[in-house]
Design a binder for these strands. Structure first.
Length: 441
RNA sequence: GUCCCCAUCGUCUAGCCUGGCCUAGGACAAAAGCUUUUCAAGCUUUCGACACCGGUUCAAAUCCGGUUGGGGACGCCA
């Protein structure tokens, strides 16, 4: 039975790098019908924060990576102490002298640190992605197991937990590769069987170097807030370091589970380039179920006071969503682009007005209003027919009138097809908005 | 400084293991065009890479060595 884990530390938000590690672990568990363990590495009481923990678990769920088991290292200190004691008893570790300068600094010295003796030996890793890597223990210092404040160090807690939780495959970032020999030493001293290791290539910022707050380490919850679809983000993450082959770009998680294999993860670090995420989000948005997309869009409409939370015409919103669906990059674009369907006082882009409404079009607009009024059935086809007929009679090219009307109706030069806009705006609002540009004698 | 990892278009990658099918394929971005009612989408093009040097071989993007470049790790952080 395959058991993998994702082990974030709640000292910061979940960002792209962590999410990709989580994805690859989760995918492996699913592909092998194994278990996905979430382990919260909250041993640093100072820096661990509840809000980070919440953000991380919320984001993991949003991305769809539900865990089968969850553990908190802060609840397991006793276990670490037991194993540390074992190592001291066997002579593999020692207690640091209490007149150590560092220890003196602690006002209330609770205990002394427990330190692991590193003995000369060769350490070989057989990495599932990278192959054989060899280290010489000569280059590794003695390792602290338990700090003076009684908390375990990362490498120690990690080894104890991976062994105790029966993790079969440790899939983690490249940055842990130099921790691996240290951990193997501990596995050996403790008599634990080694898991398989797979070190994922790192994701680098566009500026080069590690992802950091300054350099593109945006929280996953932020991507959610910006209007990206979880499925699109998953797909984007999936393609960072892995390829399904066959020149495929759009791959659902269900398909990925079938195709996924650690063997074809590549070794090269990937540079984060969000342009492709935008494209991918557009692709997913286009194919999203309009009803679902409506659910996604509603909160932003409520927030902008475009609709009342409990009292609005849902079918109308669904229609509008369908109108914009194919042109959106993010979900939040909808509230921005479709604003004119919801606001009372239309704000008109000054540049657009200058360009298309500077000329007096009173005659044409009045005529068009008359045509609309005489329509027996107010629907898209009839609106278009009426318009084209009128344009023909006036001997005008359609676009000469389409652009000004669009600006008068929407305040923008861009948007969905004009006749759909007129239909969904409704006869009255269309008349009122056009009326503002008709000069009274 | 020491140790470790990596190296195909600007970016994500296919190909590399099992040399020849590679005048290196796809996607994003960029540019142009088509369509058209603007934008988006779609379609058609264009631009664009095997880091370098040497070796092995009839043949190297693919195997080997070195150089250079990039990245990571060297905490009583995780």
């Amino acid at each position: 039975m395959v058991r993998v884990r994702f082990a974030p530390s709640p000292t910061g938000n979940l960002h792209i790098g962590g999410a990709r590690t989580a994805l690859f672990n989760w995918l492996y568990a699913k592909a092998k019908k194994g278990v996905f363990v979430l382990r919260i590495e909250d041993t640093d009481q100072e820096r661990s924060k509840k809000e980070y923990l919440e953000e991380i678990t919320y984001s993991l769920k949003w991305l769809g990576f539900e865990w089968d088991e969850i553990y908190y290292q802060s609840e397991r200190f006793e276990i670490y102490h037991q194993y540390a004691k074992k190592l001291v008893d066997s002579g593999a570790a020692y207690v640091a002298s209490s007149d150590d300068e560092q220890a003196q600094k602690l006002v209330n010295k609770k205990q002394d640190a427990i330190i692991f003796k590193v003995t000369p030996q060769k350490i070989k890793i057989n990495d599932l992605i990278r192959g054989e890597i060899e280290f010489d223990a000569e280059t590794i210092k003695d390792q602290v197991l338990i700090k003076s404040d009684g908390t375990p160090t990362y490498n120690f807690a990690c080894v104890v937990d991976d062994a105790e939780m029966k993790i079969t495959h440790v899939i983690r970032g490249d940055d842990h590769i130099s921790n691996t020999p240290k951990q193997i030493l501990l596995y050996r001293a403790l008599g634990f069987a080694l898991p398989e290791f797979a070190h994922l290539p790192l994701i680098l910022s566009k500026e080069g170097g590690r992802l950091s707050k300054r350099k593109g380490a945006t929280a996953i919850s932020e991507y959610h807030a910006m209007g990206y679809l979880a499925a699109a983000l998953d797909n984007y993450l999936l393609l960072l370091g892995w390829s399904p082959g066959g020149n495929r770009e759009i791959v659902s998680m269900d398909e990925a589970i079938k195709l996924y294999d650690l063997k074809n993860i590549n070794k090269t670090a990937a540079v984060l380039d969000l342009d492709k995420l935008d494209w991918m989000n557009n692709q997913y948005l286009k194919n999203e179920d309009p009803e679902k997309l409506t659910d996604e869009v509603i909160p932003s409409l409520v927030e902008k006071k475009y609709i009342e939370k409990e009292n609005f015409d849902r079918n109308y919103v669904v229609s509008l969503v369908k109108l914009f669906q194919g042109r959106l990059t993010t979900i939040s674009d909808f509230a921005d682009w479709a604003d004119f369907f919801f606001v009372q006082d239309l704000a008109i882009d000054p540049a657009a007005q200058e360009k298309f409404l500077a000329k007096d079009l009173s005659k044409e607009f009045s005529l068009f209003i008359k045509r609309l009024e005489s329509l027996e059935v107010y629907d898209i086809a009839n609106i278009e027919a009426a318009f084209r007929e009128m344009a023909k009679e006036l001997n005008l090219e359609a676009k000469v009138l389409i652009h000004p009307i669009r600006v008068a109706l929407t305040g923008k030069t861009i948007g969905p097809g004009l006749f759909e806009v007129i239909y969904y705006l409704g006869k009255e609002r269309t008349k009122a908005r056009l009326g503002k540009f008709i000069k009274k004698e």
